[in-house]
């Protein structure tokens, strides 16, 4: 990717970064009495389009705004596929379940993927996985057969999740861009830790873990599986020897604390892009920052709607990019 190819785009993103929510904006949101006042505050900050959207609509609008801006700035959107493969595999899982249960859902699909969800649904309905991209074909067929023959939706999901992680890692590295490669590595490592912990707590056997955990550079798969076979403390011990030693405290705290830790880890890795005027990386970082921002606002809105104590909501808030 040429260093000078995105000068115009990065300059526009630099200005757009001014309107990202920062910590003080989050504090303002937290000080709102209820969801309605949060929505009013967000509308004042330019969130939404008409000003009368509900919480779900305003978040969808903001996500659409991000991708419209990026589509306007970047001619070849395939450079961002590393972020979108996960959505494709999510849609594949949903499509297989839809076909298996013979039901018709529409709101379970994610819009932003490398291919349209309708194409994935069509491929699954027609059992024609050759029409899917090569990296999806094998896992689609295997997950489909598992669900149709055993009805084990958990195993079907595991097959697709692992394929998603392997694709993200492989394609992320293939971009030859440090940010995409690091993002992919962190995504896979965090997912592997999560799977190892959950598998250990639910007493899954080694075969299952071999099937569910993807290989990555920063974790040794066989060591992680070995540790998971020996209990949670062994996983903590193994993680303490890796670059993810900070994860141990978060895992001990709660699963939501671990999720927050993993999101914060990615934000910390992309933060130097705030000062990088060249390459595609600042644009990619902006996308991640917006997704993180939308996720955090969703947590606040949902917490306010369900009258969850502020302290509990604050514990789940992510670090902001700016």
């Amino acid at each position: 990717m040429a260093d000078n190819q995105y000068l115009y785009a990065v300059a526009r993103i630099r200005t757009k970064e001014n309107s990202l929510l920062d910590k003080s904006d989050l504090d303002q949101l937290m000080n709102c009495k209820n969801e309605a006042s949060c929505l009013r505050l967000l509308a004042d900050k330019g969130w939404g389009r008409t000003g009368d959207e509900n919480a779900d609509q305003i978040l969808i609008v903001e996500q659409d705004k991000t991708w419209s801006l990026i589509t306007e700035l970047v001619e070849d959107m395939s450079v961002f596929n590393t972020f979108l493969y996960g959505n494709d595999f999510h849609n594949l899982k949903a499509a297989i379940k839809q076909v298996y249960t013979n039901t018709d859902f529409e709101d379970i699909y994610i819009n932003h993927g490398t291919m349209k969800s309708e194409e994935i649904i069509k491929a699954v309905k027609e059992h024609n996985f050759n029409s899917l991209p090569e990296h999806m074909q094998g896992s689609a067929e295997e997950a489909y057969q598992v669900l149709m023959h055993t009805g084990d939706s958990g195993l079907s999901d595991v097959i697709i999740d692992k394929a998603a992680l392997e694709t993200i890692l492989q394609k992320g590295k293939a971009t030859n861009n440090e940010l995409f490669a690091k993002y992919a590595e962190l995504k896979v490592a965090v997912a592997d830790i999560n799977v190892a912990i959950r598998s250990c707590r639910t007493h899954k056997d080694r075969t299952f873990m071999e099937r569910a955990i993807a290989s990555c550079d920063s974790l040794n798969k066989s060591d992680l599986i070995e540790a998971a076979q020996n209990g949670v403390e062994a996983i903590y011990g193994y993680l303490s020897t890796t670059v993810y030693e900070d994860a141990v405290a978060a895992i001990k705290e709660s699963s939501s604390a671990f999720e927050r830790w993993s999101d914060n880890l990615i934000i910390r890795h992309i933060r130097p892009q705030l000062y990088n005027p060249f390459s595609i990386s600042p644009l990619a970082a902006y996308i991640i920052a917006r997704e993180n921002e939308i996720k955090t606002v969703r947590i606040v809105l949902s917490g306010k709607r369900n009258e969850i104590p502020d302290k509990s909501i604050r514990e789940r808030l992510r670090e902001m990019y700016v």
Binding site: N4, L7, Y8, A9, V10, A11, R12, I13, R14, T15, K16, P277
Partner: peptide, 14 residues
């Protein structure tokens, strides 16, 4: 030219 590209990005927004 390089500075112009970046400048156009800034002026587009402001």
């Amino acid at each position: 030219g390089m500075a112009g590209e970046a400048g156009a990005g800034i002026v587009t927004e402001d």
